[in-house]
Design a protein around this nucleic acid. Structure first.
Lengths: 145, 145
DNA sequence: CTTTTTGCAAAGCGTTTGCATTGAA
DNA sequence: TTCAATGCAAACGCTTTGCAAAAAG
């Protein structure tokens, strides 16, 4: 299949919103567009700073609420952190994390072998698994010097 | 080997502190004792509230700084969270996490099969892996109603 | 016209910092 | 006697809330 055009991507976004009874506002579209080109794990403030360049009147509040709303409907995910500002993950594909225990930075990595881990039987009795992730904790290159 | 006595546990704690040039204070001992009997993933405030019963004059500050210090020397670990107050993990054995995406609660589970995951070769080139953890994200029993 | 969303300001919560005092070594 | 640790208070950063005005459906 072809790479979808931006229009197609935005159309799909609009459909998803409508499916969840969310109104389409220029702010939400701008935030969504920014997410498409942003860093892997942006904070709400990073998105706010970026969107503000085009919409100088947008408030941090709207950005933050929108991101939380997007997380609710599964457009993105809140990422595990060690503390500090929340980070959002715009990549809903299967991927895994390297957590630096010193600086707190999170790097993604792909590894097919981790994607198909079997979930222990008994867990299904008390937990509904939506996503699997392997987190490798340690020291990143920059911090190991 | 026998279950170690409390005295032995505290003696070991004192040795670890001395090894890191930390002074032994009654507050630190009290905090450490509390950690031994506390919940799996206490917040600094939870530890503070508990220790305060015995040491009414202790400040939140001391508790918080002590926990961060303990994390620095490897006595405990800061746990991945989705946001909110930091949580500390007093169990340094290998174990894995269930993260509820709705309420944010973290449950531990053990699974031998996950403990021995092979780390992809190339990761060693840019990351020093200290610990491996599988995180299953989803909805916990309480939230799925 | 109705209901959601926005922007703003204030409040809230958790963490961090500076500093004088205390206490361990 | 020295230097680290404590307690306190203020500052700080991030998140959340309430509410009136604006905008979407």
């Amino acid at each position: 299949m072809q790479q979808p055009t931006e229009k197609e991507i935005i159309d799909e976004f609009i459909q998803i919103c409508q499916g969840h009874l969310l109104k389409i506002t220029p702010q939400r579209v701008a935030i969504y567009k920014e997410l498409l080109i942003s860093d892997k794990h942006p904070t709400a403030d990073a998105i706010y700073q970026a969107v503000k360049k085009e919409y100088p009147n947008i408030s941090f509040d709207t950005v933050n609420r929108t991101l939380l709303k997007f997380a609710e409907i599964g457009l993105l995910e809140v990422v595990e952190i060690f503390g500090g500002a929340k980070r959002f993950d715009t990549d809903v594909r299967n991927h895994h994390h390297l957590h630096c225990m010193r600086c707190g930075k999170i790097q993604d990595f792909m590894h097919g072998g981790y994607d198909n881990l079997a979930v222990p039987e008994d867990i299904h009795n008390y937990f509904q698994v939506k996503r699997k992730r392997v987190v490798l904790k340690g020291i990143c290159k920059a911090c190991s010097k």
